[in-house]
Design a protein around this nucleic acid. Structure first.
Length: 507
RNA sequence: GUUCCCAUCGUCUAGUGGCCUAGGACACCUCCCUUUCACGGAGGAUACACGAGUUCGAAUCUCGUUGGGAACGCCA
């Protein structure tokens, strides 16, 4: 079985002079939180080790890659604050750095060159098998229960033979020859420890498609080598790919980087997080009003832990404390509830002025009409933010909170009924309306409100629930909500009166 | 099916042979604060998948079982 069993990559630690890591998304959609977490860990590892963080674009799947997607991913990474040292420029999207270009679609000459090298040395060969032939073999293998790998009859052709065939117009893929590699490959994974791959785990795999485009496992190796990537930190789903990549490294005589396979981010059902189970795009969280700091903090906690057990920590803390040893090898379920809690913690620590600026776009988008010119009234803004801050978890929560100021959205909720039926309610509300009318200013103070409340108490001879529930209905249309003495001073006298009248009319 | 990976409260995790009658966080429950809803504070319930070994001693090391996941493409 393992005649040679060389420890392929453990002896190569010193071949790299500096830490260089990369995040290499394919621009075929949005940036997934799992991807964002991989980017985060790479970024942190680079920062911790004074290394370089590189953004490479894996766009060899021409049909699915789009510029739109690339822009979104870049935007999300910028939002998270995961600045990269080399790769496409965050704004112009032009290549920047010594290893440019960083888009695989523009590096085809490299892949061609190394594919030729493999072809010439007999480590790869042209394969003329048709789709139909491949399908037939697969079906047969399945039926036999052998689950053997594809064996190409062209594996032993000479290069000249194959080239003669190509001249006649036949198309071929290039396959990497694995038959002769009869040994176990041992990967010393930074997170998982020793991982042993049996050599027959893979068959001869494609490195160049029939249209000449290279395939992931091939470009990945060439680029990592050419870009002098020292550590490959990527999701666990790539673990089986590593065997193929190890074979290519070996075939080309490239120095092998250290690998670390990070655990997967899972759904509630413990399967790989997918969009069918809810929002998984970073972009989604940004739109819902999550803070990038909270996202980073939360993502880090899926798989990594703070040495002192802290739950809340800054990016700077992470940069200083990050280490691969504290990375957990088992998968982590993405807990949206905890993420929300974490965001609320960050949100509450925010400066009120900044918080106002952050929620305003959400209010505008939801077309919340604030009384007149309140949007430019700094005092009102700060006061309202202070009142609502403990009630918000994410920015978009502000919409339903600030809605109470919008007269056009004032409705009397059905849950108010039981309080409107109470005998004393009409008296309470009438008194409330009268006393509010007597106020000489546009807004009343908290003291004004307290005084009015006391007067109603005496005049209508009502206290407790029967007093403040109806009053709250008259202010916000429902019996539960923010404390009246906090919210009433934020409302215009005219709207208070108009609302009181509406409620009085139906009780 | 094959290969690989993984296995501590419902969830994220701490734990690297004795500090473990297993610690923290979210969620949950109770109480306090509160004339509602929240915020906040104090408590509580809940976990080492199972079975063998190694050891004076195992959540921790080994093996097996079971369970879960991933990969098996001219996707990445």
């Amino acid at each position: 079985m393992s005649n040679l069993g060389p420890l392929i990559n453990s002896q190569l630690n010193n071949q790299f002079s500096e830490v260089r890591v990369r995040f290499a998304p394919s621009p075929t959609g949005y940036l997934h939180v799992g991807g964002a977490r991989s980017a985060l860990f790479n970024y942190l590892f680079a920062k911790k080790n004074n290394g370089k963080f590189i953004l490479r674009i894996e766009d060899t799947d021409v049909a699915r890659s789009t510029d739109e997607s690339l822009k979104m991913m870049v935007q999300d990474l910028v939002w998270l604050g995961l600045e990269w040292d080399e790769g496409v420029h965050p704004i112009t999207l032009k290549d920047m750095g010594p290893c440019a270009p960083y888009r695989q679609s523009q590096r085809l000459h490299y892949y061609k060159k190394y594919a030729d090298e493999l072809l010439n040395s007999g480590k790869a060969y042209y394969c003329f098998m048709t789709d139909l032939e491949l399908e037939t073999v697969r079906e047969k293998n399945k039926a036999d229960g052998t689950h053997a790998h594809i064996e190409s009859p062209y594996a032993d052709w000479t290069l000249a033979q194959a080239q003669a065939e190509i001249v006649t117009g036949k198309t071929a893929v290039v396959r990497f020859k694995t038959k002769h590699l009869r040994k176990d490959y041992i990967l010393n994974d930074l997170i998982r420890g020793e991982v042993k791959f049996p050599s027959d785990m893979v068959g001869d795999f494609v490195i160049l498609r029939s249209d000449g485009m290279p395939v992931y496992n091939f470009c990945c190796v060439i680029d990592d080598a050419l870009m002098k990537i020292s550590h490959v930190l990527r999701a666990e789903e790539h673990l089986p790919n590593t065997l193929r990549q190890l074979m290519i490294y070996e075939g080309l005589g490239f120095p092998i980087p250290q690998f670390g396979h990070i655990s997967l981010v899972l759904d509630d059902d413990r399967q790989k997080l997918s969009k069918r189970k809810g929002a998984v795009a970073c972009d989604n969280f940004r739109r819902d009003g999550y803070l990038p700091e909270a996202m980073n903090n939360f993502m880090a906690l899926m798989g990594w832990s703070h040495p002192e057990g802290c739950e809340l920590f800054s990016m700077d803390d992470m940069k200083n404390l990050f280490s691969l040893e504290r990375l957990n090898a088992s998968g982590a379920v993405f807990d949206r509830v905890k993420l929300k809690w974490m965001n609320s913690q960050y949100l509450r620590a925010m400066d009120s002025q900044l918080l106002w600026k952050s929620i305003l776009p959400f209010l505008t988008e939801a077309k919340i009409q604030l009384p007149n010119d309140l949007t430019s009234d700094l005092k009102w803004q700060m006061q309202s933010v202070e009142v609502f801050k403990p009630k918000m978890e994410i920015f978009s929560d502000s919409v339903s909170l600030y809605e109470v100021f919008d007269d056009s959205k004032f409705v009397i909720h059905p849950e108010s009924d039981e309080f409107l039926k109470i005998e004393t309610t009409k008296m309470v509300l009438q008194t409330w309306k009268d006393l509010v009318s007597e106020i000489q200013t546009e807004f009343m103070t908290t003291e004004d409100f307290m005084r009015i409340e006391n007067e109603i108490k005496t005049k209508a001879n009502v206290k407790g629930k029967n007093l403040f529930m109806p009053m709250r209905v008259a202010v916000i249309g429902k019996p539960h909500g923010t404390e009246l003495k906090l919210i009433v001073p934020l409302m215009k006298k005219s709207s208070l009166i108009a609302r009181a009248e509406k409620v009085i009319a139906i009780c």
